[in-house]
């Protein structure tokens, strides 16, 4: 079981991803945007963050810039979970420490759980 933080502004998507991730037996918390995720970080330090990009208040990119994960939380793995087709933003996010980009509208529940297993230290 890994600790997963889902950062997603759309409630329906947040709920369904929470459902899927929980079905994999993981410990899940959710945040409704980048600002909300920054607030939750000190109290809940996840193994993996599933991060949407296009969000109100603070976008995924702004979250990555402000959280400074590489220094403050080097163990956290960030996976971008976004429908964004803007290569520039995704490349910027990968530079800021994200390890992978998954397309929300393409990914199947099993694939998502497989990705979490690959990037989780609990995979054994």
């Amino acid at each position: 079981m890994a600790k997963i933080l889902i950062v997603e502004d759309d409630k329906a998507l947040r709920d369904v991803f929470e459902l899927i991730v929980k079905s994999g037996g993981h410990n899940v918390r959710v945040a409704q945007d980048g600002a909300d995720a920054l607030k939750r970080l000190p109290k809940f330090i996840p193994d993996i963050i599933l991060l949407d990009m296009l969000m109100p208040v603070k976008s995924g990119l702004e979250f990555l810039q402000e959280a400074n994960l590489k220094k403050a939380y080097p163990a956290i793995v960030v996976i971008i979970l976004s429908n964004l087709s803007d290569s520039q933003t995704i490349q910027e996010a990968l530079k800021l420490g994200a390890v992978k980009h998954l397309i929300k509208s393409d990914i199947m529940p099993d694939d998502l759980l497989r990705e979490l297993k690959i990037h989780s230290k609990w995979n054994d």
Binding site: D10, A12, L13, V16, F17, N83, K104, S105, P109
Partner: peptide, 10 residues
Amino acid sequence: RTPATAVKQY
């Protein structure tokens, strides 16, 4: 795409 993605996942 956002609501359609939620429909797809459910």
